[in-house]
Structure formats: C-alpha cells, structure tokens
Amino acid sequence: MDFISILSIFVLACFVGYYVVWSVTPALHTPLMAVTNAISSVIVVGALVAAAAQGSPLAKWLGLGAVVLASVNVFGGFAVTARMLAMYRKKDKAAPKAGVKR
C-alpha cells in the first residue's frame, strides 16, 4: 500500500473516533479508557510478526517480550472493562434475572 492510502485510512479513522467518542456517556469514561487501552494493544500484531520471524534472535526475543506486555493489556483491559460494565445497573434491576427485557 502506498503512503497516501494509509494516510487516508488514518485520517478517516480519526474522524470516526472523534464522533464516536463524543457520543460516549460521561458516566462511562473510565470504562472507555480501559477499553481503548485494551484495543490499543492491537500492537500485539506487530509483536507477533517480530516474534514469529526468523533471521534475528534479538528481534525475536524483543517481539516475544512485546507479546507478553501486550497480552497483559489485552486480557487485563477487556476483563477489567467487563468487570466495570457489569456493575452499571439501572434502578430496580439490582438483581437482574434471565429474560429481563432491556
């Protein structure tokens, strides 16, 4: 891919991010930070490529190190977000049962 198509993707994604994030309710700003943190660990993709490749043992071990760090974030980030979101309840739904309609 040439630079300009990559740049286009980036700029458009910034705009999408801008509008989507403004629609997030302030009550959920902490989960927002936790989940953005989890998804920014998509850098694990780069780490996997480095760890998987042959040719440079140094790059491989750096890659593996990055895989560990990013995995902490991926699992930790999504799990802690889920834990937080599970606590947000509406009135009278303190103990929600299966089949309760939203």
Partner: peptide, 24 residues
C-alpha cells in the same frame, strides 16, 4: 507503528484511541 509496518488494524485502532484520549 501501524504506519511503519503498513498494518491497517493498528492504524485504525491507533486513530480511534488517539482521538478518544484527546477528547477526554
């Protein structure tokens, strides 16, 4: 890093997270 590695998943995500933090 997405730009460096020509990886669209990283670019899209990075842009989302970057603008999210900036707005906050």
């Amino acid at each position: 890093m997405g730009f460096t590695l020509h990886n669209t998943a990283m670019i899209i995500t990075g842009a989302l997270v970057g603008s999210s933090g900036a707005i906050l």
